[in-house]
């Protein structure tokens, strides 16, 4: 598998990989867009027509000031309104595990966009397994820095869990990338057992349209 080249630029590392997958001039929805960093960057570098959804008022204000069209809302309730295939790309970065109804969110995402890019922390990573197995503790690490009683992450899953759900929902996985602790893409093949063990984060490109 050929991994997209990482982009150079003043945006967060994990957003760069996602940004690199978006073609020039695309219509893009970023769900959980924070302060609009990625959309502003995409608008500037790739002239995309971007929209954002963000929960926090401070995030929305910052994004609006950047010239990004953002609505205050959340993935669980506010994706229903968009028509089918409203966007070329929908991005859900590090947000799926914090939604109340991940399955519905995922269903909406692939419905309203021709391609969806979803990233989340991989609970199947060996460090998580190690912490549970040998320390008997809920995993806490760089990607999941919260203690169990304060974490917003209520629906954690492993890479393989996620692939199972996609398969159940008839969602086509066009591309799967696992990032290791250093942010490097690591090998992804077969059942993805290796990636599920060593990947810290997973990035998937999904579509409901088979054969594209």
């Amino acid at each position: 598998m050929i991994f997209p080249k990482r982009l150079k630029g003043p945006i967060r590392d994990d957003l760069q990989l996602i940004g690199s997958m978006i073609p020039h001039g695309a219509r893009v929805l970023d769900v959980g867009c924070g302060n609009g960093e990625l959309l502003a960057w995409l608008a500037h570098e790739k002239q995309v027509d971007g929209r954002g959804v963000e929960l926090s008022m401070a995030g929305v204000r910052a994004a609006v000031a950047r010239g990004v069209a953002v609505i205050q809302g959340d993935a669980d309730t506010d994706l229903d309104d968009y028509p089918d295939d409203a966007f070329d790309y929908a991005i859900l970065s590090q947000t799926l595990q914090a939604t109340e109804r991940p399955r519905e969110v995922l269903g909406n995402l692939v419905r309203i966009s021709r391609r969806s890019i979803v990233s989340f922390p991989n609970f199947g990573n060996w460090r998580s397994r190690f912490q549970l197995m040998f320390r008997g503790r809920m995993p806490v690490g760089d990607c999941m820095p919260h203690e169990w009683w304060q974490t917003p992450n209520i629906h954690l899953c492993t890479t393989r869990d996620f692939l199972d759900l996609c398969s159940t929902m008839g969602i086509v996985v066009e591309k799967a990338i696992a990032l290791d602790a250093r942010g490097q893409a690591c090998s992804y093949s077969g059942q993805g057992r290796f990636a599920n063990l060593f990947g810290v984060q997973s990035v998937f490109v999904l579509t409901r349209h088979a054969g594209r």
Partner: peptide, 10 residues
């Protein structure tokens, strides 16, 4: 949104 308009909301 349903009309694919450019909208911000706070």
């Amino acid at each position: 949104n349903a009309a694919a308009a450019n909208v911000s909301f706070v």
